[in-house]
Each structure stands twice: as structure tokens, then as C-alpha cells.
Write a protein that binds this DNA or RNA. Structure first.
Lengths: 184, 184
DNA sequence: GTCTATAGTATGATAGAC
DNA sequence: GTCTATCATACTATAGAC
């Protein structure tokens, strides 16, 4: 069992149950490893597991979202590509966001710096793209925030209702919401 | 110590720590009651405590939000009143939403029906008001969803960033986002 | 109505065999 | 690298005194 494989399984448990709701027993069951075996990969225990997950999230964000967003296509095309990646990442609205989940309770204090780092990276990159598309700095920043607000809100609504329609609709309409319906 | 008083304290703990992150010790500390004393008010224990909180949320929503929304003023005025109530309820973005928090992990299964009941009541009432304002049924429903999506998303963003600005901005702009800037 | 005491279980973590 | 066995602690919940 490779560490990357373990982290992937780990992530799904944390994202579903949250930090305090995730027990080593649940992780043990999900990975097939005994509770004690997990300490081979994560000597500092549960806290290190969640921190590692957040680290992987940041890397994935950078690789699959931020780098493409900084590409050289039309801004509108890059935004559309982002929407597709976002849809896949959140499993069409069936999976929650780690940043939402891991910003609750004691986890908020424990992981606020990686959470803010990740969120700010996304916000800043989006702001830059929207600036390139012609928005003034303040509007660009606000629209970047609006995009993430809509994604997060749609995830919450879809989770509460047990229905992916709100998420799908938000993702579908996000490009034109940001003022890039078809052209640049 | 009245039961209503206990419920108020309870709510703050659940909303901050989530269902699994809330221990009877934390509740005991917040209320000043011994762990065992809590069973006098809630014989079925922790699960009944959270269920009671959700029940209170529903009542508060109905009384402070839905009834005013169904009043006889202009739709735009009623929406603006809702925004002010929402701002107070979420403590200007410093407090999380119970529906977000209690839809995670095992709590999702335990409380999905009161959560959906509450959310649908809000959505349906908002849809009705937006219909009165002249929107066709489909648009009214979508705009109602959009309002709640923006509120929930802004709460998540503000919580993650430790900054109430996004929430404040969303609430400020919500009326015009819904197409009722100043007039009808 | 609130308490002390405690039962029974689950938790995160460690030691050490293989 | 994975395991069994175990520790110390925290948890939810209950019994019963006052």
C-alpha cells in the first residue's frame, strides 16, 4: 500500500466526516490497514493525517486549477476549464469541500493557516484572470470572491438537500455570472 | 436554569463544533450544568439535544424570517428586512449555519429530514415572494436558491478567512442581486 | 433539578513481535 | 511495513443520593 494511495483514501473519510467525526477506526476500515499501521505513515497521528491531506489539496489545486488558469488561452476559456475541473473535483456536488469541512470546531484552529493559504491562492489567481479579462481591480477581486462563494454555497445546498441540481446549475452558469458568456 | 436557556447555550456549542465535535463536557461547561443534569432535560441524550436545537431553529426561522416575508409590504422591502434578520442571525458572518454544520458526517443521516424541512420552508417562501415581485415560477425558484447559495457560500468563505467582509458584502448586495435594487 | 459515582465503550496513541 | 496487545484518556449514558 503506497502512501499516496493511503492519502487518497484518508481524504475521502475526512471530507465526509470532518476532522472530529473521523476516527482512526473509520480510516482503518477505509484503507484496510490496522489502526497501528497508520502510525507508520503518520507518526504524529491524526493531526498529521489531516495536515497531509490539506497539503495534497493545495498541490492538486495548484496543478489542476491554478496552473491552467494562468495559461495563455482566452480568459473566458480558462474560466470554463476551471468550472469543469471544479465539477469533477466535487464529484458533481456529491462531495463536500475540505475547506468547509476542516474549518469547523477545533480543526479551524489547527488548520487555519493551510486553509487560508489554499483559499487565498485560488482567490488571487482568479482575481488575476478576471483582471486580464478587463475588470478593474476591485471588481475582479469581488467577482473572484463571488465565484468561490457560489461554489461553496451550492455545495452546502446540494449536500443539505441531497440533490446535485443546485451545484450543477451554478457551475453551468458560472462563466456568464462572471461576465464571460461566450466571447472574451 | 430554564430549558429555553439551556437550548440557547446548547445551540452555540453545536454551531461552533458540529455534532461529533460537541461533547457533553463542552455542553456542561457552556451551560454550567453537570453532565448528568443534561439528561434531566434531554433523556435521550446528545441526539435529542441536537434534534431540539434544530426544532428551535425551525421555529425561529418561521417566526423571524418566514412570517415577515409573507407580510403585506412591498416584496423588495420584505427582502431587505430578511437580509437584516439574516445578518443578525449569523452574527454578521461570525457564526456558522446550523444546516451546514449539522449536514456533515453521521449527523447528515440523523438529521436530514429536519434540515431539509427547514431549508425547503425557506426556499419555498422566498420563491413565493419573488413570484409576487413579478418573476416567472422557474426564475423565482432559481433566484431563491441563489439567495441561499450566496448566504451559505459567504458564511463558509468568511469562516475560512476569519474575515466578515465577504458576508457583509453579500448581504448588502443581496437585494439588488435578486433584482430589487430600490423600487418594487 | 442537580449532584457524585460509575458503568461500558470508543478514542488516539505506543510497544514490541514478526 | 503490518500486526497483536495494551495504555491512558475521553466519551455517552445510567443509577441513585440529596
Amino acid at each position: 500500500m503506497s502512501k499516496d494511495n493511503v492519502i487518497t483514501q484518508l481524504s475521502q473519510v475526512f471530507r465526509q466526516y470532518g476532522y472530529e467525526g473521523t476516527s482512526l477506526s473509520k480510516i482503518s476500515e477505509a484503507t484496510g490497514l490496522g489502526r497501528a499501521s497508520l502510525y507508520h505513515y503518520f507518526p504524529k497521528g491524526k493531526q498529521e493525517m489531516a495536515a497531509t491531506v490539506l497539503d495534497h489539496i493545495y498541490s492538486a489545486l495548484e496543478k489542476d486549477l491554478l496552473t491552467p488558469l494562468q495559461g495563455d488561452g482566452k480568459p473566458a476559456d480558462r474560466i470554463r476549464a476551471m468550472c469543469q475541473t471544479v465539477r469533477e473535483f466535487y464529484n458533481s456536488g456529491r462531495s463536500s469541500c475540505f475547506l468547509d469541512i476542516l474549518s469547523i470546531g477545533d480543526a479551524q484552529t489547527l488548520f487555519q493557516s493551510p486553509i487560508r493559504r489554499t483559499l487565498n491562492a485560488w482567490l488571487n489567481t482568479l482575481t488575476q484572470v478576471l483582471s486580464e479579462a478587463g475588470l478593474d481591480p476591485e471588481s475582479a477581486r469581488h467577482q473572484a470572491e463571488n465565484a468561490i462563494i457560489q461554489i461553496q454555497g451550492a455545495l452546502v445546498l446540494s449536500r443539505c438537500l441531497g440533490n446535485t441540481d443546485p451545484f450543477e446549475r451554478v457551475i453551468e452558469n458560472l462563466p456568464e455570472t462572471l461576465g464571460m458568456g461566450s466571447g472574451e
